[in-house]
Nucleic acid binder design. Structure first.
Lengths: 219, 219
DNA sequence: TAGATTGTTAATCGATTAACAATC
DNA sequence: TAGATTGTTAATCGATTAACAATC
């Protein structure tokens, strides 16, 4: 992967499809498939074969004419592209429902996402132990996260605390924020934000359900 | 909202922005703002004013020349468009981390999303009470969900159970599936699926972080 | 070599943005 | 009426799809 390939910006739509390709290749690998063509991928994923080839070519020519793609090689390439060939220190702000769920999610550790600290501002939670982690005072995010060298900050607080938490995390030097609060947080250039807006997602679902209703009424 | 307006399909990109508009209008309302122009919205949301007007016009002319939009009227319209002016019966399959988190999420009840049943296949969980709900046997999703008239099925199971659960839910007549399992589920036409792929989201975040790294290395 | 399948260019399609006439 | 701002058409931009030459 050369600097040039990084430079011509990869469309966000492509970035969104990469994890899906990755999941698919993992599945193929576990089925001990050695090779795969863009045509087979297009059938299995419900995408256009041209699109798949074009997507992959944003990062370089991983395939071979007349053969297709090597499953393990392609999986490895996407792993590198996604930045999964390293580990990340996560800190979680807010040990409520979502914080708790993430804490117990075994897949994260397995994939190199290590939860390095928990924070909350509720006195009754501070000091409480979860596994080998103790909930620390939310006021101390900046100093503690800086010491830990945290890479990613998870915001699992109520919405009114989200911006302040984001600010502390950014001040502590995190390079990415995974935001579960139902607001947009503002960060300085160079820091990445990825939102999980559960309500938004549920509302979209309701929209589509309502649209289906209208559609079927017309028949 | 006429049938015609429903018929000319609304781009998915627009649908994704609607919940954000809705959140924004709620915020304006709580600040007791009476009116808002597409220009102000564009500043606050970081979107193009033309785009906002065009988005809203997919559903009808809610504004007034020289004035803008009435906050409460527009909020009400979007509420209707999203289908939030009714209640929904949800059933949750899988009372693990995510199921548990959703169960405790107070916002859902408040917004008319009523959790009507919990299912799991783990014997040690079946019969366990959460609030006024008792975990029921996952084998009985179809019969019980049918009786309840469930609208939305939430899949919060491991990935290998997801398709089977989806099938039972669809057979029971749910019209929407909110899928938290890291697989795509197939459903018959007319049933809507909305995915929350936590891993995919985290991977996208890592991609962007890695891309920022490459970028800053070039300076 | 013949067949298969990529990488890539060209064509199409759709979404975003600009511009402005309509009108409150 | 003058000013503001929408609704909508036209222009631009970007993403998807089709087509095919390159090549394994």
């Amino acid at each position: 992967m050369t600097e040039n390939e990084i430079m011509d910006r990869v469309p966000e739509a492509v970035v969104r499809r990469l994890p899906r390709y990755y999941r698919y290749l993992q599945a193929l690998e576990s089925m001990e498939e050695e090779r795969v063509s863009s045509l087979k991928m297009s059938h299995d994923l419900g995408l256009n074969a041209s699109q798949i080839r074009r997507d992959l070519n944003c990062f370089g020519g991983f395939g071979q004419q007349g053969y297709g793609y090597s499953v393990s090689k392609l999986k490895g390439e996407i792993e590198t592209i996604l930045g999964l060939n390293r580990s990340y220190q996560l800190i979680i702000a807010g040990v409520g429902n979502i914080g708790h769920a993430l804490l117990n999610y075994p897949n994260f550790e397995k994939r190199g996402f290590q939860i390095a600290a928990l924070f909350d501002i509720r006195p009754e939670l501070i000091g409480k132990a979860y596994g080998n982690l103790v909930v620390q005072n939310g006021k101390e995010i900046e100093t503690i996260a800086k010491t830990l060298g945290a890479d990613i900050g998870v915001i699992a607080t109520p919405k009114n605390a989200a911006q302040e938490v984001a600010d502390s995390m950014v001040a502590a030097g995190v390079r990415g924020i995974w935001n579960f609060a139902p607001v947009e947080v503002a960060v300085r250039r160079g820091v990445c934000v990825e939102n999980i807006h559960l309500n938004d997602s549920l509302y979209s679902l309701c929209y589509h359900m309502a649209a289906e209703d209208h559609l079927s009424e017309l028949l």
